[in-house]
Structure formats: C-alpha cells, structure tokens
C-alpha cells in the first residue's frame, strides 16, 4: 500500500475522497445556514447551531473536517507543483481546445477558497470557539451571523458572494472529476455526472450567496 500513496493516482484518490467529503459537508452547512432565513428572530437557527456546537459527534467531525481540508490542500499543492515541473519549457502559442476554464485553474480557485476560509474562520469559528460572546449572552449565534452583513460592513457580503462563485467554479469541475479519479465513470456516466456536478455547483453557489445578500438587503431597507 505504501506504493499506492506515493503514486500519482494514489495522491489523486486522496484528493478525491477528501473532496467528496467536503462536498457532503457543504450540503449540511448550506442546509443549516438556510434555516437562518426561516423565521424572523432566528430562533430555529440558534437551536440548531447550539446543538451542532455542543454535540459530541460534531465535536469529532469538526476535527475530521479540519483533517479533510488539510489533506486536500496539502495534496493539491504536492500535485500542482509536480504537474508544473513536468513541463520545464512552456509553449509559445497555446490555443486550448474546448475544455472548461475551471479544469485548468483548480489550484488558483482553491487558493481563492482558502483565502476565504481563513477570513470565514476569523469571522465566525474563532468567535464561537475562542471567545465567550455566546456564553456570556452578548450575542446569539444568529446575531453573530448577521452582524457582519450590514451596511457598515458592506464589503463582507461582497467578499462572501465572490468566494461562493469561486467555490461554484471549483465544484463544477471537481464533482465529476472526483468520480473519474475513483474509476466510477464511463462514457455513459460522464455526461450525467457533469450535469449533476453543474447542478450541485449552482445550488451551492446560489444557496450560500442568498444568505449575505438577504441580510444586507434587510439591513439596507
């Protein structure tokens, strides 16, 4: 098995499995976020957020999630560097055939997502876990979410929506790519997986974007 991890395909399998895990995580994350739009005072969202924050399974899963991100990013770096080294002299003219822009720029898109991730952790995760904003009753989870989507901080919703577009582009290529990497693909399934992947990418990008846009509109109107 040691040969497997050091092989190019083995590394890609790690990217694919961690990526698929992140894809499932995004579904759960989006579902919980959208609960914030259901009622006016956010009590449903608060209940669920509280449950997620105090539950032992979620405590374990948060470390699994962190590991998923770390391995995904680590191996993306290893593979990208190796791939770039495989062509020491570049082409003078390169008229690419009809392949998607996303598929050619996965690492750039990933770096954009990573930058957002850092900001996102500072905005929420850090405040939830390492300050006593919630415990001391200064703020509810719902108020913490809405606190950065206001007219004063207009740039946060803008950054968030841009990040979701980058994420959508990353997912548009990566959904079908991860199945291909695992060998779960053939010429019948490729177009189907591409279709499902595009649908998923749109749901994620639009679904997450609705939230900052909604709260910004609410604050402005």
């Amino acid at each position: 098995m040691s040969g497997f991890v050091s092989s190019s395909i083995g590394k890609k399998v790690i990217m694919s499995v961690t990526g698929l895990f992140l894809i499932i995580f995004l579904c759960l994350h989006l579902f919980i976020n959208l609960l914030a739009l259901v009622d006016a005072d956010g009590s449903i969202f608060n209940t669920v957020a509280h449950f997620m924050g105090t539950n032992i399974i979620m405590f374990v899963m948060q470390w699994v999630l962190a590991a998923g991100f770390i391995f995904h990013i680590l191996y993306s770096l290893i593979l990208t560097l190796k791939n770039q080294a495989a062509r020491p002299v570049k082409y003078e003219v390169n008229t690419r055939s009809d392949i998607t822009w996303s598929s050619q720029n996965m690492f750039i898109l990933g770096l954009g997502i990573l930058a957002f991730l850092v900001l996102h952790i500072i905005n929420y995760f850090y405040k939830l876990k390492f300050t006593d904003l919630i415990e001391s009753g200064q703020m509810s989870e719902y108020e913490l979410v809405t606190s950065i989507f206001t007219a004063q901080y207009w740039y946060y919703p803008v950054i968030y929506v841009i990040a979701f577009i980058l994420l959508g582009l990353h997912l548009n290529h990566s959904f079908q790519s991860s199945f291909q990497t695992l060998g779960l693909n053939n010429s019948n399934w490729l177009p189907r997986l591409k279709f499902i992947g595009t649908l998923y990418a749109i749901v994620i990008a639009v679904g997450f974007s609705i939230i900052p846009i909604y709260f910004l509109m609410k604050a402005l109107l």
Partner: peptide, 10 residues
Amino acid sequence: GFGSCTNTGA
C-alpha cells in the same frame, strides 16, 4: 516524470 491527471479532458 509525467504529471498527474486533473481530468481536464484536453
């Protein structure tokens, strides 16, 4: 020293 596949389809 060949690179790995990113499934671009090129």
